[in-house]
Structures are given as C-alpha cells and as structure tokens.
C-alpha cells in the first residue's frame, strides 16, 4: 500500500542530509536544556556562593536567612531521615511485591498486581500529600500529637517510592536466565532457597540500581512531604516530631525570598540537584555494568 504514494523514495540526496540536519539540531537543543538549567542555577546562587564560604551552611547557628544565618543542616537531616525511613520500609515491601509477581502469583494474578503497582506509580504526589493530610495525619495525631511529623512523611514517601523499587526489581528478576532457575529447581532447592541463592545474586545490580533511583525520588520529593511533615526547622528527636526537608523549604520560602535569601534557596536547589545527579549517575553506572 505504500506504493500508492508518489515520491516515496525521496530521490534527492538533499532530503536525506536535510532531515539528518534537522534531527541533529533537535538533539543539540535537547542536550542544551541540561546545560541551561545548571547554568541558571549557578548564576542565581552566585551572590551567596561568591560571598560566603560554603562551610557556613554547616556551621551557622540557625536558619534565619533574613538575618544572614544560613544553617542548612536541620533540613538536610530532615531530608535524609525521611528518605532513609521510607527506604527502610519500601525495600522489603517492594522486593516482596516483585517476588510475588515473578515467582509466587499465578500469571493472571501477577498481571493484575503488576498493573495495580503501575497505577500506584501514576498517582500524583499532590494526591498522596492530600490523602496523607486528611487521613494519615489525623490518625497519627490520635496516636501522638501533633500528627504532621517525620512518621507521616516516611509513610507517604514509602507509598511513593514503592512502585519504583517493585518495577525495577521485577525487571531485574525477569532478566535472570531461566536456566539458572531450572538448575536450582533440579537441585531440589526450595523456592526461597532458589530466590535467595540464585535469583538475588543474579539480579543484584538491577535491584540496587532501582533502590538508588527510589532514593533519588524520595530526596527530591517536594509537595507530598511538604503537606504532611509539619515543616518546623529542627533536628527531630523522634518519629513524631515535625521536620522540614530541603525541597519543601524551597517551596515554603520562595514566595517571599529576596536577594541573598533567594540566592540561598537556589543554593539548596543546586545541592539537591548535585545529590540526585550523583545518585542517578550511580544507578546508570550499575545498570550499564549489569552484565559484567
């Protein structure tokens, strides 16, 4: 049916090189987007970076940006506590779900459950935050006021990164050659013996790469955490203390920040981006070396 069109072959050599030229321009612009973003973040944060030493972000007495006190540590700690807690919960749950899909469920059930996880991945962060705010926070409040707390942030983040861990672990486990599993079964290994002794070692790099990606997502998450975490700048003493993360701090103060304060927010954005770039670089490196 394609022969019905005339000039299907584009006989001119010109069209070929023209098209390639257009494609090249598009690709260059796409690649430049990243450069532009880094450039603008650095330019905007220069008033602070050029003025005071970054050591002060860790040694200043407190976070009072209007009075020139730029102590980032409590927020950095908040971010790390929340992400670490979420990972602690999401890793076992996520890997268990992946195992369920690959080894435990019937094909039909596995398909449905995988779809459910994919849909969970599609729920926007603001809806998670809203649900946490209206359901989870009152529940935690009954347990131990004030409710909006590190615990709420951890639980919401767990829900958000769980699909990432599940789906990456799933594809890593699916990539394990079937002969390995057949051999393990032939040796009389139990199901867990096969998973623990054969499937996990073979899929390890893929699963770890997924966990790193999930961690990056948890660190960068803004809105959901902002809505449930209480947003007090402090080192939390326990699970029920409110925290403020680096990302939600940007949203909270960007609206009125001026001058150095604004530059400081760009610095924290830069910091976030560097952290996540390192993490995703690590995940990418692991992914590339999977076969090795």
């Amino acid at each position: 049916m394609i022969w019905s069109k005339r000039y299907i072959l584009f006989p001119l050599k010109l069209t070929d090189s023209l098209l390639q030229g257009i494609l090249r321009v598009g690709a260059v612009i796409s690649a430049l987007a990243m450069l532009l973003i880094s450039l603008f973040l650095i330019v905007e944060s220069w008033p602070i970076l050029g003025q005071i030493s970054p050591v002060r972000f860790f040694t200043d007495a407190s976070w009072h940006p209007l009075e020139g006190a730029y102590h980032l540590m409590p927020m950095l700690a908040g971010t790390l506590y929340a992400s670490a807690g979420a990972l602690l919960l999401a890793i076992p749950l996520g890997i268990a779900s992946a195992l369920f899909i690959v080894y435990y469920a019937s094909p039909r059930l596995a398909k449905w459950y995988k779809r459910l996880v994919e849909l969970l991945a599609g729920i926007p962060s603001v809806v998670f935050g809203f649900w946490g705010l209206t359901t989870l926070v009152p529940l935690i409040n009954q347990l131990h006021p004030p409710g909006a707390s590190l615990l709420a942030a951890i639980l919401i983040l767990t829900l958000m990164i769980l699909p990432t861990i599940t789906l990456t672990a799933y594809s890593a486990l699916m990539a394990v050659p079937v002969e390995f599993l057949l051999n393990a079964t032939a040796l009389g290994l139990s199901r867990w013996g096969m998973i623990h002794g054969v499937a996990f070692p073979a899929a390890r790099t893929g699963i770890i790469a997924g966990i790193i990606l999930a961690m990056a997502r948890a660190i960068g998450e803004t809105m959901a955490v902002l809505m449930v975490a209480g947003n007090v700048v402090q080192y939390p003493d326990g699970l029920f203390d409110p925290i403020r993360t680096l990302a939600s701090n940007i949203v909270l103060e960007m609206g009125y920040a001026m001058g150095d304060h604004r530059a400081m927010l760009f610095v924290s954005g830069l910091l976030l981006m560097l952290m996540l770039m390192m993490l995703s670089g690590m995940a990418g490196w692991l992914g590339r070396n999977r076969c090795a």
């Binding site: 954005g269 976030l272 770039m277 995703s280």
Partner: peptide
C-alpha cells in the same frame, strides 16, 4: 545529559 535531566527533582 538527558539521563541527568531525568534525575533532576521537580522543584529544581
């Protein structure tokens, strides 16, 4: 560069 872009958090 696209891979790095994919890792940038939305607030940035």
């Amino acid at each position: 560069s696209l891979q790095v872009l994919a890792g940038v958090p939305s607030i940035v």
